[in-house]
Design a protein around this nucleic acid. Sequence first.
DNA 1: CGCGGTCCTTGACCAAGGTTAAGCGATCCC
DNA 2: GGGATCGCTTAACCTTGGTCAAGGACCGCG
Lengths: 226, 226
Amino acid sequence: MGLSDPDWDIVMRAPLFKAMGPTISRAMIGDRGPKTYARGERIFDEGDPADGFFCLLDGWAKLYRLREDGEEVVVAIFSAGETFAEVAMFLGGRFPASCETVSPARILKIDAAKLRRAVMDKPQLAFDMLAAASMRLRHLVDEIEHLKARSAPQRIADFFVRQAAESSGPARIALPYEKALIASRLGMKPESFSRALGKLADLGVVVERESVSIADVARLAAFADG
Amino acid sequence: MGLSDPDWDIVMRAPLFKAMGPTISRAMIGDRGPKTYARGERIFDEGDPADGFFCLLDGWAKLYRLREDGEEVVVAIFSAGETFAEVAMFLGGRFPASCETVSPARILKIDAAKLRRAVMDKPQLAFDMLAAASMRLRHLVDEIEHLKARSAPQRIADFFVRQAAESSGPARIALPYEKALIASRLGMKPESFSRALGKLADLGVVVERESVSIADVARLAAFADG
DNA sequence: CGCGGTCCTTGACCAAGGTTAAGCGATCCC
DNA sequence: GGGATCGCTTAACCTTGGTCAAGGACCGCG
């Protein structure tokens, strides 16, 4: 059983598959279908052997680490059309973090061995993967800078701006998972998140139950940049 | 003119060159010698085309970004035997940060084109580089975690422990650059750095002008881990 | 309906570290 | 030798965000 046509569209949106082209992609995915997950299901655990990478077809997942004191630190949140854990495969074969769905989801798993073979066949692929890794690295470097340099309301504003499809004018974005999760992602406590949201009201940010409406994305972006 | 034997030892200590093996390394470096820099010299600027990567043979360098308000945020400090900017090459060809020596230094530059050719010849090399990228990713994730979980004195203790050659017993380490720079690297202001150093005195850390003596590295390491 | 659970918000309090400003020792350079 | 400058330290104060505790909105369920 292969993938449905809409699923193929989603898969081919991911940079890695785009780089491989449809032929190699199809060969690599083969006739294996996606797995359906309920909310809160584990995809992999920190320390598990990294024998493949994943492509999210539908839903949301969080990548996180458990600190020794039991505190959970969210490293990334993935949404439909994103691949993840592709770099981890090369690091001694173990995942450096855990991953779990935060909503019902459908996830495709691709074998490490198959990817390995594809790279051997087409070394240019390695460069594309290195570029992806670089992108993520740069992202994290940015993040460290932000953590140090930006206040809680600024970090939230930045998060909202990135989520919004528009780059100026009014926008409405959905919050398809708990606010505590966003808070952890942004390196703060739910309480601080709440309070910071209050401060954003002055900038035309109205928070409803499961969505946020923004009066002017550009203004919010300006605030986030200080 | 090639490299001297001690320089080769330093080069081969870097994970990237170790992954490539001596033959490929030698081919890639060729007969190009290291360039000598004075203190405070620019190695590259944010936005410059990333046409190569670097290996520090001697001295220290800082990777940093200038915020719009002119404040400098130090992202990393490199010391002898480290390679840097190797990932930036793969990301659209621009450096995402600036780099500058903070002491006299000797630095080897390796051509992007040569690396590209080497990978095409031996795709396994790509895997080794992905592993190196992955390692650095993990490092950064660790850092984000630490930034949140550790107090200023703990972060300083951790920094000292990493610098010390010994893993237990007494040690003395040199501070070959300004304390303000270390403070920035550790995400705090020089004033906080000073105060935190005072608190470390109880743990047998004595700070002189340009060096630090540690009574027991193991004890300091224990403190850093909480 | 009421009960309990989960998620979110609010308020009072507190600790860490940033801010501001002053002072001190070294070094540089006329 | 005597400013001037630079790097570092110290102290008083203040802002940020974490902690703790209480309460409110929504939801499922008996």
